[in-house]
Design a protein around this nucleic acid. Structure first.
Lengths: 220, 220
DNA sequence: GATTGATTAAAACGTCTGTTTCAAACGAGT
DNA sequence: ACTCGTTTGAAACAGACGTTTTAATCAATC
């Protein structure tokens, strides 16, 4: 008497390959490459077969690279290239840019594990990470440099780059040093560091540094 | 015929325990906890006996914690708590502080693997990392907040903290995102980012943000 | 219904892991 | 010279690892 097995539709089940890819991203983000076993990935993906990883991807290493690529080809993950109407004051553009970046980094537009995965890879970029930098990180920096060039035409490129890193650095610090910050100011105060609050502060701080505003002014 | 073995004095050989501790710090920094095997550590330490790790330290986990503690009790590793003569203008103190911090983080005062180990641990601090934050990172922040409080007595504590993070963030970004920066501006320009140059820039940027100087001014 | 190719399940593969064990070697004290 | 506690060397342990292999299952073809 054969059992009447209907495929259980637990929560929509795409094909195995896609589930492995998604699970790999999450698990790799949590535990790192070395801290993750292919069995962990399979379990998270709900795949009984441990050999599936080597069937769909050639190796664990390859799975990692594909998972990385998959996590950041998603349009929600890329910082949206802003397009301002003609004649927008560069100061407004800079304001929008900074605000957009930190909201993207700290906000809830991106799955948290995706950013963790990114941070992990950027610490010691492999081949996949280098491609990520050229296709995603560098263009962002170049947009910023373009804006700064409009605002500060007299400043040479090298110093422009340093100013850009000072702005980006403030944003990324709140992501990569999040556990430290929480320990330093206490959990309660850290909970009040909303992405919008931080955005406002960093915009103010940076514009003041460029002599375009006073620290403490409310900006738009 | 027994060989006449004189203990080779390769480069001064302290006791096994100390050599394991030092080697562990380096290897853990390079490959992370999961990427490091106790055999790797023993090899680096020049210890034939794989069981030595479990003999001197109870486990690999324990070795990691002790290596972490060992790496940062070294006085060269701690940021020297600055002591200024009475009546030093707070602006000068702030300048010294920022310059001291970035020289400490990026300069050659600390073994590079020690900073790498610190960065790795701070990303997801374990119990040892939390202690590190309270004993080392938080006091540094509190010194900075003290200076800022002197300079900006009207600003409330929360905003003071944010200003502090903006300053510290600029410094740490150049350490933790070093590979990214190298890829973004090219190897040649990145090679010109001397610690003293970066210090000067960050001091200028931050003081300008606080309205205490103009960006582009040479400071002392 | 048989045949084919793609997918799954399950077991087995060496190899490497952290840890334990046991005996040999050592150094100081009597 | 003998003994003791400490340190080493070398082997062995069970378990986890990435990967391969074999057979079973499935869906679609003719």
């Amino acid at each position: 008497m054969a059992e009447f097995e209907t495929r259980q539709p637990e929560t929509e089940t795409p094909d195995t390959r896609a589930r492995l890819l998604e699970a790999a991203g999450q698990v790799f983000a949590e535990a790192g490459f070395d801290g993750t076993s292919v069995r962990d990935v399979c379990e998270r993906a709900g795949v009984k077969n441990v050999g599936a990883v080597n069937y769909y991807f050639r190796s664990k290493e390859n799975l990692y690279e594909e998972a990385l690529r998959n996590a950041f080809q998603c349009p929600f993950t890329r910082l949206p290239a802003p397009h301002w109407p003609e004649g927008t004051p560069p100061l407004v553009k800079l304001h929008d840019f900074i605000r957009g970046m930190i909201l993207h980094i700290l906000g809830d537009g991106v799955q948290p594990w995706q950013m963790t995965l990114l941070m992990r890879e950027l610490q010691k970029p492999g081949p996949a990470g280098e491609r990520l930098v050229r296709d995603m990180i560098r263009p962002i920096n170049e947009i910023l440099w373009g804006l700064l060039r409009e605002i500060l035409p007299a400043v040479d490129e090298r110093r422009l780059h340093l100013i850009g890193f000072s702005i980006v650095g403030q944003c990324f610090y709140h992501r990569f040093a999040r556990p430290v910050i929480r320990l330093v100011v206490g959990q309660e105060e850290h909970a009040s560091y909303d992405a919008r609050v931080l955005a406002e502060h960093i915009v103010n701080f940076s514009l003041a540094a460029l002599g375009l505003a006073r620290l403490g002014e409310e900006s738009s």
